[in-house]
Each structure stands twice: as C-alpha cells, then as structure tokens.
Design a protein around this nucleic acid. Sequence first.
DNA 1: TTTCGTTATGCGTTTTTGTCATAACGAAGG
DNA 2: CCTTCGTTATGACAAAAACGCATAACGAAA
Lengths: 110, 110
Amino acid sequence: MEIRSKIWVEVDGEPVFGRGRRFLLEAIDKYGSINQAAKEINISYRKAWSYINAMEERLGIKLVERRTGGKNGGGTVLTNEARSFLEKYKKLEDGIKEIVDRRFKKIYGQ
Amino acid sequence: MEIRSKIWVEVDGEPVFGRGRRFLLEAIDKYGSINQAAKEINISYRKAWSYINAMEERLGIKLVERRTGGKNGGGTVLTNEARSFLEKYKKLEDGIKEIVDRRFKKIYGQ
DNA sequence: TTTCGTTATGCGTTTTTGTCATAACGAAGG
DNA sequence: CCTTCGTTATGACAAAAACGCATAACGAAA
C-alpha cells in the first residue's frame, strides 16, 4: 500500500498544467524537439502536440516557438514565458511529495 | 487560475482510496444506505456500488455490511475496519490542501 | 400476498483516450 | 533544381473506459 499525490493548475475548472506537462516542457527544453521529448517521456507525439496546444490556448500564453522544415527538419524551443511558468510550478510542486510521504509513514506506520 | 491537489492510496499500482471514496463512505455512514449516499454526493448508484466492490477487493478488507430486503428495503452500514481506515485517511488528507494553497498564493499571488 | 426502498447486475451507449497513416515544410547538399 | 531528412501538423479510425438505463431479487411489515 503506497500513497500518491499530485497537484495541478486549472483555468476555468479545466486542468492546464501538472507533473506530466512539466516533464514534457522540460524535455522539449532539453532536446529542442517535441518529437524527441515525447519519446523521452513515453507518450505519443500526437498527445504531446495536443497537450501543448491545449496549454497555450487555456493559459493564453505562447509556450513554444515551432519551426517546421529546414535543417534537421525543424524543431521547437521554449519561450521565456514558458520557462518562467515552469519555474513557478517547480517551486510549487517540489517538496509536496515529501510532506505527504512523511505523513503517510507517521499515520500508517512502519 | 487556481491550484488543485489530491492524494490517494494505491495497492499494486492501482488506485484504491481517495477523496471521492472518502465522501462516499462518510455518506453511507450518515444515511445507512448506498443509494442515499450516492444521491448525496451526486454519483449514480451503479458507480457507488462499483467503487465499494473494487475497494473491498483491492484492500482485502470488508468495508460495509449490506442487507437487502426487509424493512425500508434494507441498507448498508460501515464495518469497524472501514471506520478505522477512514480515520487514518482523514488524518492524512486534512491540512494538505491548506499547505498547497499557501504555497500557491506565495508563489503566484499578487 | 402486496408494498416498498433497498441491493445487485447485465448490457448497450456515450465519452474519452490512444494510435496510425500521411501531408507539409524548408535548409542543405548534390 | 530537386532530393533528402527529421521535424511539425492533422484527420480519422480504434480501443478502452466510464456512464447510465432497465430490471431482477430481496424480505420485513402491514
């Protein structure tokens, strides 16, 4: 028996950002490609693409700069707004899991 | 933009108990009836029934005592094990939301 | 034996989620 | 000029999960 927790951001009651999308943006930042990022975190490109579109629409922020075609087929880089948003989310999330785990051990014991 | 959080218990990687099921058990305790409880928390009886079955199977604990037929058509009461489990979960959950909200205000607020 | 409000459950429908196939793009190199 | 390559971009179908309707069974009391 284990405890799990998650936190996420909503806009108008619709989920807009959580741990999965955090990993997606971080992977895009690392690889410069939605395609590679999706492989890294084990989701389909289609899904990654849908996530990004939904996030941008709901947040009203342009998160990525996409280039299609060209050398290496193109690519995608994070905007400064995306980096800033990501940082805030990381601050929010980091440490929560530890707090929850500690409580779990204390209450359920051993 | 608002923050949301949830915690839940898993067994073998399968979710087994969370806020919704907490409310369900509490409502059963209050009304002595799965049917009334389901109405109270706005889910179908079918769903409530499925939840209970899955919980009991995965936890390996008998959570409710069901009686069918008879005066008032029967009813359902919580077992002592269920009450004990519920108490632990409430201890675990209560306060987490406040911690998360405080962080959110601090990081995103004003 | 009728009534009543439960529990119990099969099954078709709807909604959501996931996956596959394929087009478009455009810089670089031949 | 045109082929190549690894991207981005989407439609359309498939699979899975969730939903909820319809109906049976139950048994104490009147």
